[in-house]
Structures are given as structure tokens and as C-alpha cells.
Amino acid sequence: MAERTATIASRVGLHARPAAIFAEAAGELDLEVTIAREGEPVEEALDASSILSLMGLGAEYGTTVVLRAEGEGADAALDQLVGILETDHDAE
């Protein structure tokens, strides 16, 4: 199981546009990626490709989340997703 932590860099939190960009990227992978707030049990992790789950997570600017995935290419895939979370998409 590959695992990464990331800190939300978007000023508005993981909402709207940043959430859409992230969910879309997670959905394009051949892997099942989960997302959870740091410290929450693995079994409560949510589907990272679900925009509704992401919004329900209520992750604000500065919140740390944990991404997990299993299988071939998991490490590279998670690195890419961490990159998305740690970019301030509203500053573009």
C-alpha cells in the first residue's frame, strides 16, 4: 500500500474547482485511490475520484490529508495527486 500526505494549498479549500480538478485526475487513473483527513482510520477513507466525497470531507486551506493506493504505479500516481493538492489553483 502506497501512502502520501498532502496539505491543501488552495485558499478556498478542497472545494469547487480544486475538487473538480483533483477528482477528475483521480478518476483517470487505473487505481483505486482513497483520501482521508490525517489521523482518521483507513476504513473511513473516501473515494478520491468522487467530487461529492471530496466536498463532504470539508478540507480547508492547510488541512492535511492522507492519500492511499495499491498496485502497480501507485507511488507515481500518488506523487502526481499530491502535486495537485499542493498547488493553489485559485491563484492561477
Binding site: 469547487a16 475538487a19 473538480a20 473515494d47 475520484s49 468522487s50 461529492l52
Partner: peptide, 16 residues
């Protein structure tokens, strides 16, 4: 465009 894109993702949302 952003709103419509997010709404499209909601419509095809896996967890829903």
C-alpha cells in the same frame, strides 16, 4: 464553465 464541469462530475459521481 467551472460550475458546469463540477456539476457534470457530480452527475457521474461514483460514490453517489
Amino acid at each position: 464553465a467551472d460550475v458546469l464541469k463540477a456539476t457534470a462530475l457530480m452527475a457521474s459521481d461514483k460514490s453517489l
